[in-house]
């Protein structure tokens, strides 16, 4: 492996940023796989990118707007039909502690 260079990805830390739990087994496994993958993608560092405009999306469409006109919303029943848990017309979640 050609590591050293990339001081790297800390899988456990990043998983927390993504609000996703990982098991110890997963952390260990992903750490070595992602070290390898991150090492590979660092290849783009070889390109001379000075002065190149970034493209965050495809071909340049601009000013694509919608008129401020009402459209049908979902019926309340339909909106709640997929809710894992409902409480009096609200989407129920564990207590939010700010």
């Amino acid at each position: 492996m050609s590591e050293e260079k990339h001081n790297g990805i800390d899988v456990a830390y990043v998983a927390n940023l993504a609000r996703m739990s990982l098991t110890e087994y997963e952390i260990e496994k992903f750490q070595s796989q992602l070290d390898q993958i991150v090492g590979y993608v660092e290849k783009i560092g070889e390109l001379d990118l000075d002065g190149v405009e970034p493209s965050s999306r495809m071909r340049s469409l601009n000013n694509v707007y919608r008129k401020d006109e009402l459209r049908d919303s979902l019926s309340h029943d339909k909106a709640m039909a997929n809710a894992p848990e409902e409480l009096n017309g609200l989407f129920k979640v564990p207590k939010i502690v700010e």
């Binding site: 401020d68 006109e69 009402l70 459209r71 919303s73 979902l74 309340h76 909106a79 017309g89 609200l90």
Partner: peptide, 20 residues
């Protein structure tokens, strides 16, 4: 309507009725 969809911005509606 809302910024990204055609749902009403009416704040007095019953909960979860102006949704899509």
């Amino acid at each position: 309507t809302k910024i990204f969809c055609g749902c009403s911005v009416d704040s007095e509606s019953e909960p979860n009725t102006n949704v899509c």
